[in-house]
């Protein structure tokens, strides 16, 4: 079986990640930290883009999925795996064998929660849905705050340092690959159809329920993985790190990138992660400037910073699905 060109790109990214990771002792630790944070935010933004951008279900609960992934993954490496395999608690074994399983567990748990959080999207739209998903995220946070077995309000400390460039870059590549592959197919156009017009979508036989829930589950799965990476990178997690400001921050990446525009969202995720770093010299005004820029951007280019056409043309050899036809210049309305 011959995998497609996209798949080769994915393998390339994984290979690049492992090379970088092996050389990581030569990289300035500060840059390394920033790079890992960028990659984690790319995963979060691209996965939320499937829900918000492509399927049009405005969710502000992504930090909740991230929290689930972080807690489940950390519990796996800290408690469950050593409990099951007491012999295999060497750091190397945990890093290479337990950690991927922990990420998967975190992703699956978050995906399961995605079914629950996605359910209201069957009845609610727009800002109502936004506020309910935000509520779900907050409820998840409160639950963790009350779970004494994972540290309660104090959080969970002493998580093994398993996250490295290899895992973050591979997972970011996997997320981008999965989301773009899903969306760039006849099947995947259904997500956009749901966003554009649910009634018309049903009329051509698209099961809008299944599509919405799928978007939430897949989006939540990758957010869970991002959470797992985050926990094993920060080495300690506490419920305050997953409040709705985090959800809003991820949503901003999606909106600034241009909803449903993966390349734009990736760029926005990178920029928005770097922006606070770049603004460090003016630390006092940093967040004021940030929010002011946000309002200004919404007023001046509400479609997002990165218009799809420009970037699609620039990157067409890498991103275009095999089935997409050449683009004619659009006619004026």
């Amino acid at each position: 079986m011959m995998p497609g060109r996209r798949f080769l790109l994915l393998l390339g990214a994984v290979a690049a990640g492992s090379v970088l990771s092996l050389q990581s002792h030569r990289i300035n630790p500060y840059f390394l930290d920033v790079a890992v944070t960028v990659a984690i935010n790319v995963i979060l933004a691209v996965s939320l883009n499937l829900i918000n951008g492509y399927t049009g279900q405005f969710s502000l609960g992504h930090a909740g999925f991230m929290a689930i992934g972080a807690y489940i993954a950390a519990s796996t490496t800290m408690f469950w795996a050593p409990g099951l395999l007491p012999a295999a608690s060497s750091p190397g074994f945990i890093g290479m064998a337990v950690f991927p399983a922990a990420l998967l567990a975190g992703g699956l748990a978050a995906g399961l929660a995605g079914i629950l959080v996605g359910a209201p999207s069957l009845r609610l739209k727009g800002d109502y849905l936004a506020i309910v998903t935000l509520g779900f995220g907050e409820i998840i946070r409160v639950i963790f705050r009350n779970l004494e077995s994972v540290g309660g309000a104090l959080g969970l400390n002493g998580i093994p340092a398993c996250t490295n460039l290899f895992w973050t870059i591979s997972m970011a590549a996997l997320t981008i690959y999965a989301v773009t592959s899903m969306v760039h197919s006849t099947y995947g156009r259904g997500f956009t159809a749901v966003q554009d017009d649910e009634i018309a979508a049903e009329a051509i036989g698209i099961n809008t329920t299944r599509y919405k829930i799928t978007a939430f589950v897949v989006g939540a799965f990758f957010a869970g993985i991002a959470g797992g990476l985050y926990g094993h990178f920060k080495l300690s997690i506490d419920p305050r790190g997953f409040d709705f400001m985090k959800s809003i921050e991820i949503a901003l990446m999606v909106i600034l990138g241009g909803m449903g525009n993966t390349v734009g969202v990736i760029i926005a995720a990178i920029l928005l992660t770097l922006l606070p770093e770049l603004l460090r010299p003016v630390a006092e005004y940093r967040m004021m400037l940030y929010s002011f820029l946000l309002i200004l951007l919404m007023l001046t280019c509400p479609q997002g910073l990165f218009q799809p056409r420009f970037f699609r043309r620039l990157l067409s050899p890498f991103l275009r699905g095999s089935a997409a036809p050449a683009e004619d210049p659009p006619r004026p309305a």
Binding site: R189, T192, A193, D196, I204
Partner: peptide, 14 residues
């Protein structure tokens, strides 16, 4: 009720 943000091609493809 077309899918306004999609191309003509994709409207039929979907």
């Amino acid at each position: 009720r077309l899918f306004p943000s999609m191309t003509v091609f994709d409207n039929v493809r979907v």
